[in-house]
Design a protein around this nucleic acid. Sequence first.
RNA 1: CGGGGCGUAGCGCAGUUUGGUAGCGCGGGUGCUUUGGGAGCAUCAGGUCGCAGGUUCGAAUCCUGUCGCCCCGACCA
Length: 604
Amino acid sequence: MRVSRSLLVTLRDDPAEAEIPSHRLLQRAGYIRRVASGIYAYLPLMWRVLRRVSAIVREEMDATGALETLLPQLQPAELWQRSGRWAGYTDGEGIMFHLVDRQERALGLGPTHEEVVTALAADLLRSYRQLPVCLYQIQTKFRDEIRPRFGLMRGREFIMKDAYSFHADPDDLAATYAVMEQAYSRIFARCGLRAVAVEADSGAIGGSASKEFMVTADAGEDLVLTSSDGRYAANQERAESLPPAAVALPPAPPSTLETPGQSSIEALCSAHGFHPSQIVKVLLLVARFAGGRQQPLLIVLRGDQELNTVKLSNGLNRAHGPSWGSLLQLQPLEPGQLAAPDRLPFGFVGPDLDDAVLADSPGLEPTFLRLADGTALDLERFVAGANRRDLHRTGLSWGTEGDGVLAPPPRQDLRAAQPGDPCCHDPSQQLVAARGIEVGHIFQLGRKYSEALDARFTNDQGQDEALWMGCYGIGVSRLAQAAVEQHHDEAGIIWPVAIAPYEVIVVIASAQDPQQVALAERLYGELQAAGVDVLLDDRPERAGVKFKDAELLGIPWRLVVGRGAAEGRIERVERASGERQDGEVGALVDDLLQRLRQQRNPLA
RNA sequence: CGGGGCGUAGCGCAGUUUGGUAGCGCGGGUGCUUUGGGAGCAUCAGGUCGCAGGUUCGAAUCCUGUCGCCCCGACCA
């Protein structure tokens, strides 16, 4: 392709709306344009990148035996009602775009395809002899994100590869899950990304085992915790760790403590010399369930620990979802929700707070659901609020009766793992925090969807049973931007060869010099004939402009035809290393072709 | 949804406090010079100042409403 004909529009200034480097660069170098919030046009250069990423994804998916399909984006509400997800995905802060057609039928734009693919499986799969099967597609997904941001990172319309596997038993599912994990590692490696697989929460999609693939980058929206020996990595939502040891509170009889205005752990510690682990803190929340129940929660944690809301939500769903409907929302209890806010001394609350503070509050259940993390329950003695303003108690303990003895709430794992915590697999290792961009997520779904949508097959015993399912996603457009986030410098993008829009750019230093033009044209033709994706910068610009653009675009190799053209000499510059070589055309090109063969597929 | 900010030429911005009929840089066209690291000079084109009401002799500027966009948070396969 000739640059003069390529609709290349680069910007000299950073676009005002872009915050992170990858978004700025993609916009500035003419790869994407915003059409509306979270909705982008992929310009010709970007489309080439996306096609190359897709090609790698296809090769690796095909290699696992998966079958490519294309499923509808417009989906009937009825399917989603059958899986039980319609309300959750469309009400309130649901993320599904939905509409009503001229016949008053409700439809949604697919944010994911479990329903459609499971309905198809129900129709097509009848016998264990057909299993396992894995279907995949590369297609645009729609999600009405609460806050789209960072360009393609969190868009409302984006390209995704999603795959769904069907199995006769859980072992076979686990085997395919392992194959997919391998395929994913290969895909990210081939795309030139440093990615780590981390244990993850399976979230709203449901299921048991789940892993996320994270591209490490400062702009990442997720916090990943890894052990320094590399044997453990997990999303913080899901991470497990050993709690750091508590500092024992010296034995003393129970007593009250004047704590004027000391409503935070820090204030308490600095005023009285406590260690945060000697204090028991109480969080008051309200959980809203699909059945309409608004349940006040009293959460007890050790003072140095933080609540992991994902663990709490999962626990609530498990214990109460069947009777109260699924958990919709978890929010702090606000004084405004109480009939008599004055009765509740926020900041001085202890685990034994009386349910009476909730009395007559409209909409709220009249009693707290009380839960305590093990770290708090394992304290022998502790400090806690006295349930009266400006007053705490010390020398408290857990038990059934006695002075200063509080009834322990039911135990549940609620604490968030933190950087610096000892690792479960080896207490001598500590967790280290890194930011990550989620580019892939694989799940063992189990039978959640097949049971809901009645996707059944006949097993080898002649019995009818629900299919076992897995699902596997890769954010294709997000992956492309994540690559930029990981590979750029001051001057612009530095594409890995495997996903670059073009592998080589031939720059004519002076388009007025017929000798330069002739040599560049010859070179351009030869490279094309050799199967190289090559750009020819034939614009009548000054050399400096073309060099800047080549760097901004991030083309891995630049061949400059300039002063040496008459002697058949050119300059070759590698974008990533900045390494320059002057030499005779033929030799430099031969060497380049060799390097390209290797760089196109680092795993080959 | 809560908090904050911004909508003025294709892009980046000034002008708004104190109302007087719109400007700068980049980019685009043309001509001359220049020609290996985002050139110089000259010249031209390009804006219903997001939109709708209102106040005023007069509104980019003041008031009301509305739409859009960005950031933080909540939220999120």
